[in-house]
Structure formats: structure tokens, C-alpha cells
Simulated assay, not measured.
Amino acid sequence: MDANPVYQWFSALLCYPEADLIEALPEFQTALNEWPELNAQQACLKSFLDYLQSHSLRELQEQYVATFDRNRNHALYLFEHVYGEDRDRGSAMVDLLEEYRSRGFELGDEELPDYLPVLLEYFAQVPADHAQKLLGDAVHVIAHIGGKLEKSGSPYAVLLQGIAALSPVPPQPLVEPPVRDMDEAMETFGPDIAGTEPLLKPAVETVQFYPKNAYTAQKGAVL
């Protein structure tokens, strides 16, 4: 059993919708009703479950692709929003991989470490205090994506907002990431996931979900 099942709940709902997800919606509703940490977001999150229930699987899949695969502003890859094509993105990927491996969490062959549903799966399996610490680091990016989804009128916005509401620290607005020449990025990263390997570090002390000055702290806020 997952240590923090609420994160697993969000992770499943953020994945590409399949028939088994729709069949399990009553179980998702039951969990929503029972978990006190979701009480404040219950009405909004129920509206998302109702959205899934009221559309055909084909409609849901088409909308998911249009929302996340065809719109870079909504990408669920966290580092996309803070590093863009900057070379530091590869280093951040490696740091996050090391975090996963340090606790025995292995990714599938085609999964990237900064994919939000993957990160939430990890949160579900580690001690609650560690999950909260990492969420406090990542919440700025998560809330940023949620804001983009809300502006576009996407029903998925409430999921990102619900995750952000679990954070022990309030989110701060992000600075838009730099854009690098694609040829230079290919030279840096290579054509596939293995392109990050030259950026390996001898040791990892902490996971950085955003580079220095990636978000604008409010006056007087404690970072």
C-alpha cells in the first residue's frame, strides 16, 4: 500500500485516460469523500470526476492530447517550464533520477523523471515528511502549470490546484524560462534521454525543481 495514497489519486487522474480509469471513477469518488486533506478542494475535484464521467473515452482522450501534447504551455514535464531548452535542464534531470534511485524508485524505459504523474507516484511511496519537502520545492512549477490550464479553461486545472493546496509552502510566480537555439540544445543533450549522461555529477545533495531566480519571491517571503 502506498504511504501517501492521495498523491497516487492525483497521478492516475493526470495520466492519459483509459477505460480502466473510467471504470474506477466510483472508487476515486469514495476516496475523495474520505480523505480530510482534500476537504477544501472537494467540490472542485468532484467537478473533474463528473467531467470524466460525462464524456466518452474518445472525447476524453482527444481532449487530453490537445491539452497536454499539443500545447507546450500545459506540458506536464516540470523542467520544461523553468529551464526551457537551457543545458541546466539535463543536470536537473540527473539530480531527480538520483533522488528516485536513492530510495529504490525505478522509472520505466520511456518515462522522464520530471513528468508530474511520475513525481506524484514517487511522493506516494516515500515517507510523508519527505514527500512534503519535495512538494514544497516543486509547488511553484505545479501552480504555474495550473494557472496556464485555468486561463485556457481546462478542467484539468483543478487537479494542479488541488496538488498545490497540499504544499507546506505557498507557490511563487515563475519567471519564463530561457529559449536556446535547438541545434545547440541537441549538441548539449543528444537525440535521446541518454544525452543527459555527460552532465552526471559525483554526488547529489538536493533536487532543484527550479534554477536560481526561476521564481519571483514576494516581498518579505521566506525562501
Rank of each mutant, 00 (worst) to 15 (best):
P26M: 08
G146Y: 00
A214E: 00
K151L: 14
G162C: 05
Q63V: 10
F68T: 03
T206K: 15
L57T: 10
V126L: 04
E205N: 13
E34Y: 02
L49A: 08
H81I: 10
A12D: 11
Y215N: 00
R87A: 04
P191T: 11
P127A: 09
A24N: 08
L159N: 01
G108T: 05
A12V: 15
P202M: 06
A43P: 01
Y115H: 15
K151S: 15
H144R: 10
P173L: 07
I193H: 08
N71Y: 00
S154K: 08
A19L: 11
V158G: 00
M93P: 02
Y16E: 04
V169D: 04
E111H: 06
P155N: 03
H55W: 06
E18L: 11
L78K: 03
A164S: 15
A214K: 01
L134N: 09
E111C: 07
D137C: 13
E34I: 08
L174D: 00
K46L: 14
F10N: 07
K148L: 10
P168Y: 06
F28D: 06
F10V: 04
L112G: 03
D109Q: 14
Q208H: 15
R101E: 06
G162M: 04
G90T: 05
L159W: 01
P173C: 07
L57S: 09
Y7A: 03
P26E: 08
E85M: 12
G147L: 08
L159Q: 02
K151I: 10
N73V: 11
L76E: 02
T216N: 04
N39D: 14
L76M: 15
E18H: 14
E187W: 06
M93L: 15
A19F: 06
G147T: 14
P113K: 05
T206S: 13
R72M: 07
D88A: 14
R58E: 09
I22N: 04
P155Q: 07
K133F: 08
L45P: 03
Q125N: 15
E37W: 01
A221T: 15
G153M: 09
N33Y: 02
N213G: 08
A128Q: 14
I145C: 03
Y77D: 03
E184P: 02
T216S: 09
T206V: 12
L223Y: 01
F28Q: 06
E80S: 13
L45C: 08
L57H: 09
Y51S: 05
L159E: 01
V179T: 14
E27A: 15
Y77V: 06
